[in-house]
């Protein structure tokens, strides 16, 4: 089965009101080119589930988000994501604020077809008090109360990987695949952008096969977009673009998202990459040191 699609056709599967999961973590390996395609589309009223970075900030600022399911939204070296802050401080989005691990459990429950997974995480805190939809339950095995973390069922997941073949076998060569495998499994439709499209024989090497974290049946569409994680990182291919994130953050105080998008977004990814200096410049961005 050939799962290759253009970014536009892949993202056209997202309908108003859908729940969309976004892989990556903060400023790291975000499917930003797919997010930009959403920004170019008319789709709206999304529920977004993410370990958030600029993906969340941009979608909030562009008015695409009705509800956000989050544990944090951060650019790490810039701790506070500027447009996420604006969205919260203007009261313009609904939120379900949960613990990072609760999000993992919600994705697992969705992946496994369970209504919830019990956990002690969240007890005694405002992630329970502020979320009346998250129920506390009795255990059949002890006398304690537990959090019933509900399944986070996703209509669509967006993920960026290093390499993939046309059937949807995806390689993440960087140090961490984050929770992307669970985003892939929790969604009805999983759209994956890749920095490089490779022949299936690429995965014959067992070391490369071990860098595949979900089966191809969990991948619905493959979009080849070299540099598609920019301005987030796709280690080891490129780091995150510190200068770009600084300009993005500054734009929140001067010009707003309209000014940022006017300057960078373009009509398609080729134009975006010209606006940020080209693919070679993206691939030359050094990896961060922690």
């Amino acid at each position: 089965m050939d799962k290759r699609l253009s970014a536009r056709d892949a993202v056209a599967q997202i309908e108003d009101g859908m729940t969309v999961g976004i892989g990556g973590w903060g400023p790291r390996r975000k499917p930003m080119a797919l997010v930009r395609e959403i920004l170019r589309s008319d789709v709206k009223d999304l529920t977004v589930v993410a370990y958030g970075g600029a993906d969340v900030g941009m979608l909030c600022a562009a008015g695409k988000v009705k509800k956000l399911v989050f544990a944090f939204v951060s650019l790490d070296f810039i701790p506070l994501e500027p447009y996420f802050r604006q969205a919260r401080q203007s009261g313009s989005i609904e939120v379900m604020e949960i613990d990072e691990g609760m999000m993992l459990l919600g994705l697992r429950a969705a992946a496994w077809g369970l209504p919830f997974i019990p956990t002690e995480v969240g007890l005694g805190t405002d992630v329970i008090n502020q979320n009346p939809d998250i129920k506390l339950i009795d255990s059949p095995y002890d006398d304690k109360e537990w959090v019933a973390m509900p399944a986070l069922n996703l209509d669509v997941s967006l993920i960026h990987v290093d390499r993939a073949d046309f059937r949807g076998v995806c390689q993440i060569a960087g140090p961490d695949h984050y929770l992307d495998d669970w985003f892939a499994r929790a969604a009805k439709t999983t759209i994956v952008s890749c920095d490089e499209l490779v022949d299936t024989s690429f995965f014959a090497d067992p070391a490369r096969a071990r860098e595949v974290f979900w089966e191809r049946a969990a991948t619905s569409a493959i979009v080849e977009i070299p540099g598609g994680a920019h301005p987030s990182s796709c280690s080891p291919l490129y780091g995150f673009d510190v200068a770009h994130f600084k300009a993005y953050t500054a734009s929140a105080k001067d010009g707003g998202i309209a000014g940022y998008l006017e300057k960078y977004l373009g009509a398609d990814e080729a134009e975006y990459q010209r606006n940020v200096g080209g693919l070679d410049a993206i691939r030359a961005i050094a990896l961060p040191t922690y």
Binding site: F70, A71, F72, V73, S74, P79, L80, E97, I98, D99, E100, G101, M102, V121, G122, L123, T125, D126, V127
Partner: peptide, 9 residues
């Protein structure tokens, strides 16, 4: 600010 992050857990 950041959000609850992993503090509840």
């Amino acid at each position: 600010m950041l959000g609850a992050r992993g503090f509840p857990g």
